[in-house]
Simulated assay, not measured.
Amino acid sequence: MVKYIIDSEVSEEIQEIINSGFIENNDTVIICCPTHVFQSEFKKFSVYTYTTCRYRLLNKIKQFSYLFYLMVKFRPDVIFSGYPLLKHRITSLLSLGRVKHYSYLRGLFADPKNYKGFSDFLYLKLLNYPKLLKICNFQCDRIFTVSKINVDFLIARGVLPLLITLIPPPWLKLIKKRREDNLDCAGGKGYIYFVTQAFSSHSFKDAAASQIKFALKIKGYLDADCIDLIIRKHPRDYTNYEGLGFFVNKVSSYDFISSLNVNDILISPFSTLAAEASYFGIRVIFYSSLELDNIYSKIYERLGIKPFYKAEDVCNEITLFQSDNNYGPDLKEIFFND
């Protein structure tokens, strides 16, 4: 029997860690998450929640302190995180290796040479001290991930291949069944969604500003034609889009993808959601900017995607998409399929 602390800021990560065969029925599970992430299905486990505030540094200190407290209190065998953060590595290392750190990476990573934020700069500083690299984000004891793109990213960041396990995305099978049972997915009124990324949360301030600017420009063009642009926010994007005059879709990730129909259109940079939508035949228009190119140009080149740089061109592309259901890039092969 193994005792786990599952620590994540995203409800889907927790759900999939619990339900995807990583954990046996007789294992002990303690969940640590923000209050707003809590789901009713977590009640069958011991759950410890905390509130967050607007100040990022205070949140990080609070999250690390709470996780360390739970490790001391429960003495788990494994801390199982979604995205691996510095708090997970430090907590594991402070146990002197007794507590292992596993990570489940469901999101897609674009470029291993994208260095931004404290954890990445720490990694660069420690490259000349290999024995100290264990403290860095991706240096887990085991990593489970859903795409060869991520495997390449991890190896480039110094992760040993034998520590990486490639798995099919566990949520896509569930959503496929939902979509088969939902006749509305086959047609109906199409909506236009602008997919955001959590640039601010990952210290890409210029990209975050560019994202808002681009969305406002597209909104201006579509408003002139009485067409709504609906924001689909990344779970870690805390921008107040309602205050900017947007409609915001707030349903869960599973419900959102399950309900998309063939006439819907997503406007997105490279993102996990764009790949999920393409997997189910939903059309995606990729956009970029000079700021976003610093993050995504390599992955666009790898996948043969030619993004649009002007809001007017995106809106013209929407017209083409609405007249041709087979138009647009196909990203179905991004996810691992055994």
Rank of each mutant, 00 (worst) to 15 (best):
K3N: 08
Y4D: 04
S8W: 15
S8G: 11
S11R: 05
S11H: 06
I17N: 14
N19G: 12
G21M: 01
N25L: 02
N26Q: 04
V29C: 01
I30E: 11
C33T: 10
K44W: 05
S46A: 13
T52S: 06
L58F: 15
N59W: 15
K60N: 14
K60V: 05
K62C: 11
F64T: 00
M71S: 12
K73F: 14
V78I: 15
S81M: 05
L86K: 05
R89E: 00
R89Q: 09
R89P: 01
L93Q: 08
L96C: 10
G97S: 02
V99G: 00
K100V: 01
H101C: 03
L105D: 08
G107R: 13
A110R: 01
A110I: 01
D111N: 07
K113R: 12
N114T: 03
Y115S: 10
K116F: 11
G117F: 13
S119T: 06
L122T: 10
L122W: 14
Y123R: 14
K125S: 14
L127F: 09
K131G: 15
K134M: 08
I135C: 09
N137P: 05
N137V: 05
R142Q: 07
F144H: 08
F144S: 13
S147P: 06
S147A: 11
K148S: 15
D152E: 15
D152W: 05
F153G: 06
L154A: 02
V159F: 10
P161V: 10
L162E: 06
I164K: 04
P168S: 09
L172Q: 13
R178G: 07
R179A: 02
R179M: 02
L183F: 09
C185A: 06
G187A: 07
G188C: 07
F194I: 05
S200M: 13
S201T: 07
S201P: 05
H202A: 14
S203H: 12
F204S: 15
F204A: 10
D206P: 11
A207D: 02
A209Q: 15
Q211M: 03
K213M: 01
A215G: 10
K219G: 08
G220A: 00
C226A: 08
I227Q: 13
D228S: 10
K233W: 03
P235C: 01
Y238C: 02
F246N: 15
V248C: 05
N249T: 04
V251P: 13
S253C: 14
S258Q: 02
S259L: 05
L260W: 00
V262N: 09
V262W: 09
N263K: 02
D264V: 03
I265A: 03
I267A: 01
S268E: 00
F270C: 13
T272G: 15
L273W: 01
E276T: 14
I285S: 04
F286K: 07
F286L: 00
Y287G: 04
S288D: 00
L292I: 02
N294Y: 08
I295W: 04
Y296D: 06
Y296L: 02
S297W: 11
S297H: 12
Y300A: 04
E301P: 12
L303F: 09
I305H: 06
K306H: 07
K306L: 11
Y309F: 03
K310A: 05
A311T: 07
I318R: 10
I318N: 03
G328Y: 08
I334H: 02
F336I: 13
N337D: 12
N337S: 12
